[in-house]
Amino acid sequence: MVEMRMRDALREALREELLRDERVFLLGEDIGLYGGSYTVTKGLLDEFGAKRVIDTPIAESGIVGAGIGAAMAGMRPMVELMTINFSFLAMDQIVNNAAKLHYMSNGQINIPLVIRMASGGGSQLAATHSHSLEGMYAHFPGLRIVCPSNPADGKGLLKRAFRDDNTVIFIEHTANYSLKGEVPDDEDYLVEFGKATVVREGTDVTLIGYSGSVHQATRAATMLAEQEDVDAEVIDLRTLRPLDMDTVIASVKKTNRAVVVEDDWKFGGFGGELSAQIMEQAFDWLDAPVARVSGKDVPMPYNRNLEFAALPSEEDVVDAVLSMF
């Protein structure tokens, strides 16, 4: 094990995959010479050359489509889209091609493409640069949605993404890039998709998060234990598609209460999907309606205080839990 930050763990994953498989190459805006907007790809151009680490024009639809075409032709490309907000420009390629062509071609076409996107607010970049859109992507059958919360998972899930024959939307919360953690240095270290983890065991309520929101949930669990004598269990989903409902349902049947924590908007969001599935599968075990702690229903404001108010906090999670007793 080696302690490293999320951005370094992700870089390690990319580096190991580039070394492992000649078919892997990276496409993106400023990923080469500049090293990536969040420095995830720093140094890879020097090590692997311009044939495999390719600076592209700012042309999201073009580069995602190029990744799709190369993947169809047998390559294992990765496309970095700087932020998830810019992926709207590539929406047609992602939704109409990457997500659907395997099905529409009777399984003839595989698109093993990894699309990395930074996500989340908190940096005062306002509404075109700060959203969390994983719920929207999770809506589409045919895509895998991966949302790591810590460096070890970041590395293991990203390496696993390159082994998948489907398109993987790999979402990196900007607040997690500097997060430190112990990371296995084994080059065969992979984290399987569809396996949630119990980050903290507890008996009174289940807090469900992913990506950035796992950390609000964990901090809320500490506050609940120290201040309110409530023993919360925290689950990190890790991937939204495939979704590990077994772990969620087993926990809810033990605690009888569930709170979903997400940065994304509540209205029509992924938390609503989780609540519905919990209700469908564990209604008789619930002592209270499933609660959702989500981003506020507004475009992300620029002002520091407003942005803080728009994002879910650990205090919001604590309040939601207390209202269930």
Binding site: F25, K51, S61, G62, I63, V64, G65, A66, G67, I68, G69, A70, A71, M72, A73, G74, M75, P77, D92, Q93, N96, N97
Partner: peptide, 16 residues
């Protein structure tokens, strides 16, 4: 207009 980006991806693969 969906085809051109896909075509250059396949072409990239041929060149690579």
């Amino acid at each position: 207009g969906a085809g051109p980006p896909i075509a250059i991806g396949a072409a990239f693969s041929n060149k690579y």
